[in-house]
Each structure stands twice: as structure tokens, then as C-alpha cells.
């Protein structure tokens, strides 16, 4: 397991909201080009762990983070780090799709434009390419300049996925990305994620165990802010070592 080079590692991470410690001394290597799924009962710190990975916690009031999050060996909480560059390496899918208040085209082009792409043809290519990668191109190719808010929720989430891919990240973070979707749209997103793992490292938070079983290569189990167990999905599901993991997997705690 040690020969898996990992470009996302967490070392001794502690997170506090005011006086409340929500993550307790977490150390973890996220395997490359696999889907890692963070599971655990609600309120255990799953989302906090995910957001600590691209420093979105910076924008929450009264949060204190210590420890290291290493991306390609660089501590993103280090003193001279440019946050925007770190975030660009990671695409985020949030619980509810958050389409930006602009057209479908501009939603995708938003990231590349910010990072300096101005060439119209290049942007056209990017939009087409990533909409296809997210499996949305066929559905929207005739109305690229309509407001993105008119898409269905399922389509919006795929648009968000495409938008995240368009900044060419190395890692995709998903915060319960299917929780607002109907079963069919959820399935589509899941299928996309499984396809994308050949090029990207994927980290997904979910509270749906069945989803974890369907897509996970690697399982991270959190309980009350503690990292209880992590390992390859088959191992953890087949014989969990910790009694708390077993209890959660059998539905005794939730």
C-alpha cells in the first residue's frame, strides 16, 4: 500500500468551530486515481474534512485549523500558499447543484476565463469537451446560451461537474453530490464518477451506504470527529476491524 504515490495526504489535522473540536488528529493518504468515499453518521465531520482539503473552511467564521494537508507534497495551509492555485487543482460538487447566475456556456467558461483563457475557439472547445465528459453535451448543445438555472436539477449537477472539470483539476471532491437528485440522475452522476477515476482522484462524502458500496475503492470511516478506520473498500466492507465500523455498517449506529 505504501507504494501508492499519493498527491493528497492529511497529517495530524485538527479543526475547531469555536470551542468545539470537530476533527480530531486525522492522518490519512488518499489513493490516486481511485474513488475514496468518506462515510459516517451525520455530524461526524465528513463535510468538514472534505472542505479542509481545498481550504473552503477559510470562509467560515470562527474556524481554526491546524495540522497539514499536503497536495503534491505541499502544505496547503502553509504561509506562502496561493489559495486560488490550490483550489484550481480540485473540482467541487456540492450537495445541491450551485449553478452560477449566467448561461450554460458561461458557467463552463467561467473557470478557464478566470485563469486567463480568452481565445474564443479554445473556450468553445473546452465547453464542448467537458460537457461531453459530464454526459450533458447532447442535451444542451442547442441552448448553450440559455440561463443555466433553467436546467433540471440533475442536469445542473452534471453541469457543475463539467464546470469543475473545465479548470483541469487533479482531484474531484464531492459533498453528498447526489443528495438532491432523483435516483436516475444520481445513477448518472455515479457512473460519471466511476468513469472519471481513470484520470482523476475522486473523494466523495456520502451518508448512503449502498452508494459507498457501489462506487468506493477506498473507504474512510469517521465517527464523532475521529478517523476510526480506513482501507480498501472490499476489506472494510468484508471484515471491519473496529467494532464501531461494524456497528455502522450493520445499521446499529447511524
Amino acid at each position: 500500500m505504501n507504494d501508492v504515490r499519493s498527491h493528497l495526504s492529511i497529517r495530524n489535522l485538527n479543526v475547531f468551530y469555536g470551542d468545539l473540536q470537530v476533527l480530531k488528529n486525522i492522518s490519512l493518504d488518499i489513493p490516486d486515481r481511485k474513488i475514496s468515499v468518506i462515510i459516517g453518521p451525520s455530524g461526524c465531520g465528513k463535510t468538514t474534512l472534505l472542505k479542509s482539503m481545498n481550504r473552503l473552511l477559510d470562509h467560515v467564521d470562527e474556524v481554526r485549523v491546524d495540522g497539514e494537508v499536503l497536495v503534491d507534497g505541499e502544505d496547503i495551509y502553509g504561509p506562502n500558499v496561493e489559495v486560488t492555485r490550490i483550489r484550481k487543482k480540485m473540482g467541487l460538487l456540492s450537495q445541491k447543484p450551485q449553478v452560477l447566475p449566467m448561461s450554460i456556456y458561461d458557467n463552463i467558461a467561467y473557470g478557464p476565463r478566470i485563469h486567463g483563457h480568452r481565445d474564443r475557439k479554445r473556450l468553445d472547445f473546452i465547453v464542448r469537451n467537458y460537457l461531453s465528459a459530464a454526459g450533458l453535451w447532447e442535451e444542451v448543445k442547442d441552448r448553450l446560451h440559455h440561463p443555466a438555472s433553467r436546467l433540471s436539477v440533475g442536469q445542473q449537477q452534471r453541469l457543475c461537474l463539467a464546470r469543475g472539470l473545465a479548470v483541469e483539476p487533479e482531484i474531484i471532491l464531492g459533498d453528498e453530490p447526489t443528495s438532491a437528485l432523483d435516483p436516475q440522475s444520481s445513477q448518472r452522476i455515479e457512473r460519471r464518477l466511476v468513469e472519471l477515476k481513470k484520470d482523476y482522484t475522486v473523494v466523495v462524502v456520502t451518508h448512503i451506504l449502498r452508494q459507498a458500496r457501489r462506487i468506493a475503492d477506498y473507504i474512510v470511516f469517521l465517527y464523532l470527529g475521529e478517523l476510526v478506520e480506513h482501507g480498501p473498500a472490499q476489506d472494510v466492507f468484508a471484515n471491519p476491524r473496529d467494532p464501531r465500523t461494524r456497528a455502522y455498517l450493520t445499521g446499529e449506529i447511524s
Binding site: T84, L92, L100, P101, Y110, R163
Partner: peptide, 21 residues
């Protein structure tokens, strides 16, 4: 708030997020 996060997570600065979103 998550709408801002969506923009920030694409590597936009705060001002870019403010202006465009």
C-alpha cells in the same frame, strides 16, 4: 453561501467571486 463556494472552488479569488457571482 454554497454558490460562493462553487466559484471559489474553481480557483476564483474573492473579488472574482464577488464580481461574477
Amino acid at each position: 453561501f454554497p454558490l460562493r463556494e462553487a466559484s471559489l472552488s474553481l480557483g476564483a479569488t474573492r473579488w472574482e467571486t464577488t464580481r461574477h457571482v
